[in-house]
Amino acid sequence: MSNTKAILLVGVGGQGTILASKILSEGLVSAGFDVKMSEIHGMSQRGGNVSTQIRYGEKVYSPIIGKGEADVIVAFEVMEALRWIEYLTEGGNFIINNYEIPSVPILMGAAKYPQGILDELSSKAKTRILNANAIAEKLGNKQTQNIVLLGAAIRALSDSGDTALNAIAWKEIITRNVKAAFTEVNIQAFEEGLRAN
């Protein structure tokens, strides 16, 4: 359906994509959207890739996104952005965390981490590159890189015309979803993400 938006969050097990997706979908529900979210995380704990797909709009049918259908791809890792390139729609946005995690064939010396991914993707689609890990580290909590990326994703969606997202009480939803001791730092991370450009 044309009035439906699709966001794909991709990364590597342990990067917190699932929490970011959860907060994102709860926010969208609070704004009155119909929302579906689907995740594949079969072997994620063992270093495999993880993907979460969120679709929202007035009425959503399919919980998953086909090739060429994602309005935004948030890649928590550089090579994962490349892996999902075919899923981006024409005119869609990439948000890429400038962070590389070598996969097993690379660790084993059987393959090389592909070079020039960021240039390649920037030349093909609207791409924002963030150093979410560095930002999170500066805030004093490496784990919050996922919330930095969440902030950046919401900014990209709102810049592309989805202003309804600005009215959502994101900070409240973040507070609900993280341990009390980490609320402050996560909210800072979120704001850093919103600001990053």
Partner: peptide
């Protein structure tokens, strides 16, 4: 998925971006 069904029935698929760069697999490991 929607894309597969659309292609199967109507012979059309959404335009996609392509790249010459090759991705390395990320198989799970112990």
């Amino acid at each position: 998925n929607t894309d597969i069904v659309r292609k199967a029935v109507f012979g059309q698929s959404s335009p996609t971006l392509t790249t010459e760069l090759e991705t390395v697999a990320r198989p799970p490991a112990l």
